[in-house]
């Protein structure tokens, strides 16, 4: 393949994948809204409501406060979306990776950094907007990013460490992690450890996505939207899209770490297009389940936490739980 062809293919792939991420992310968000409404005894919005919302935002006026740093304020949403799309490139997405141009490239550590980008862009945009509410929100967002990183990194490191110990090459690559499900090779102790890590990761999801109980940076009733308070129109829509794409990237990460099985492997000798469709459907179902357990159920069942409680929960409770999970997995490899 010549370099030019590769670049053209890559561009097409990135655009296609972004569309896939946006559409799937918005559908997942719609499913979340319907499920939460049903849990609360409401009818809830139509499934495609997030699409209406984004379409409406794109048609609305994009206001910028007079005290804002214009360039940074305008650029932050673009960086957020770009960061989320880039993260999506390095995550196995069910069946789609058969065609993935970036197959085998990037690893878990790179993904950790890319997943931080949308949040960082929101922080920068929040500070640039010059509103006191946005500043408080941005400070809280930084704190919560620092907080949920510990259990998140601990989980990925532990799972990769197992592979390294088993002598697998490139243990940090998500594609390798997806090829060696933790459940397949572990004993009972390892299962317990992996289950603990799964629970921890499910609680990292609302933190990553800024949902209740970890939505202190946006805290509707306190900060009236926090770091997004000054954003409107197209810029806000870009943040929404970034959030949608990040949802898909996180689902991909969860599937790679804890549920990498493919639906198509149930039948042998399936033609590739059929297998891809099957695997993609399987991936969507798995993502929905992870999002229900980690986002919808959690945000329906609890109150919003204060920022100091968020730090305490992530560092102390979930950090300790993640370490305990790691220990169990380590002990499991000894016996």
């Amino acid at each position: 393949m010549s370099t030019t062809t590769w670049i053209l293919l890559a561009i097409a792939w990135v655009i296609g994948l972004s569309l896939y991420g946006v559409i799937l992310g918005l559908i997942l968000s719609g499913v979340d809204r319907v499920l939460v409404a049903r849990m609360q005894g409401r009818i809830g919005p139509p499934l495609v409501q997030p699409f209406y919302d984004v379409a409406k935002l794109f048609r609305k006026q994009d206001c910028m406060p007079s005290g804002a740093t214009a360039l940074v304020f305008r650029f932050a949403p673009v960086v957020a979306l770009a960061g989320a799309v880039t993260a999506l490139l390095f995550v196995p997405l069910g069946g789609l990776e058969r065609a993935a141009l970036f197959l085998g490239r990037g690893d878990g550590i790179l993904l950790l950094y890319l997943l931080l980008l949308p949040g960082l862009a929101m922080v920068v945009g929040g500070f640039a907007s010059g509103s006191p509410y946005a500043s408080i929100g941005a400070q809280r967002e930084m704190l919560s990013m620092v907080s949920y990183e510990l259990p998140l990194a601990c989980t990925i490191l532990t799972l990769a460490w197992r592979l390294a110990r088993a002598g697998v090459t490139a243990p940090f690559s998500l594609w390798t992690l997806a090829d060696h499900p933790v459940w397949a090779e572990a004993g009972p102790l390892g299962w317990a450890g992996a289950a603990l890590l799964l629970g921890v990761m499910l609680l990292v999801l609302p933190g990553e996505l800024g949902r209740i109980p970890f939505d202190a940076p946006e805290a509707e009733t306190e900060l009236a939207g926090g770091l997004l308070i000054e954003y409107s129109g197209r810029s806000l829509a870009l943040f929404e899209l970034a959030q949608a794409v990040k949802t898909v990237a996180l689902s991909g990460l969860m599937c790679a770490l804890f549920a990498p099985w493919r639906l198509s492997s149930a039948w042998s000798e399936l033609p590739m297009p059929v297998a891809t469709v099957f695997d993609t459907l399987g991936f969507i179902v798995k993502s929905g389940l992870f999002m229900f357990a980690g986002v919808s159920l959690v945000r329906a069942a609890v109150a919003r936490l204060r920022i100091d409680d968020i730090v305490r929960v992530y560092w102390k409770h979930l950090g300790l739980a993640a370490l305990a999970g790691s220990l169990l997995l380590i002990v499991d490899t000894w016996i």
Partner: peptide, 21 residues
């Protein structure tokens, strides 16, 4: 303790209480 969770999960399988517009 999250005493509301059982009721929330049960609600998933019940008819919503709100009236349509």
């Amino acid at each position: 303790r999250f005493p509301l969770v059982p009721a929330l999960v049960k609600n998933l399988f019940k008819r919503p209480l709100t009236n349509p517009f």
